[in-house]
């Protein structure tokens, strides 16, 4: 098996966490010296780990909150449970089903200990996870000293936050 971009006789690079030097660099035409590239590799790796961690935390927290809400909902509504019961799920999935869809109704729902309010909270945490990821992206490009990419990510963050305000949240 031949590997491109590797001189003959070079040791086979096993899978490492570090990205290869030829894939590194920041915006602009400047090429990196070997020392800078090594430093950059470490930074890029750190950023990847942090972004992955932000996504993982968001996902785990939202699943735990959603599961708690579901458990609470079934605990409070015995009629939802029986396998041979007569209560159809259609009563909860029609257009007239009441469920929170604004922050004030969500607050009231959670305050009264309703499971569906807690589920909606978990779903909102899930929706905010990509937004958090973009925010961390801005910081990470500042950390990598890459202003053009930091600006690009900042624009994306502004559009995202703006979209929530435009929606009237």
């Amino acid at each position: 098996m031949t590997r491109p971009n590797v001189p003959a006789g070079a040791p086979e690079r096993p899978f490492s966490d570090q990205p290869p030097v030829e894939a590194l660099g920041r915006s602009g035409r400047r090429t990196l010296s070997p020392e800078e590239a090594a430093e950059m590799a470490e930074k890029v790796r750190k950023v990847e780990v942090v972004i992955s961690l932000v996504l993982r935390i968001g996902v785990i927290v939202s699943v735990v909150v959603i599961a708690a809400g579901l458990g609470l909902m079934f605990a409070r509504h015995g009629a939802y449970l029986p396998v041979r019961g007569h209560f159809s799920y259609h009563r909860l999935t029609s257009r007239s089903t009441p469920f929170p869809h604004s922050f004030s109704s969500l607050g009231r729902s959670i305050a009264s200990g309703q499971g569906r309010g807690i589920i909606v909270l978990g779903v909102l945490i899930l929706i905010l996870t990509p937004v958090m990821r973009v925010a961390v992206g801005v910081l990470s490009f500042v950390y990598e000293k890459d202003p053009p990419m930091a600006l690009v990510t900042l624009y994306v963050l502004a559009v995202l936050v703006g979209s929530f305000f435009l929606a009237g949240v």
Binding site: S62, G69, L70, L92, T93, H101, I119, V123, I127, V156
Partner: peptide
Amino acid sequence: VTAAASAGVYFIRGQIDPIIAAPVA
């Protein structure tokens, strides 16, 4: 990120039903 940009609208319009969203998520 693309989905999050329109998720706010869906939430306010009342299209995110918890009993459907929970098992899906």
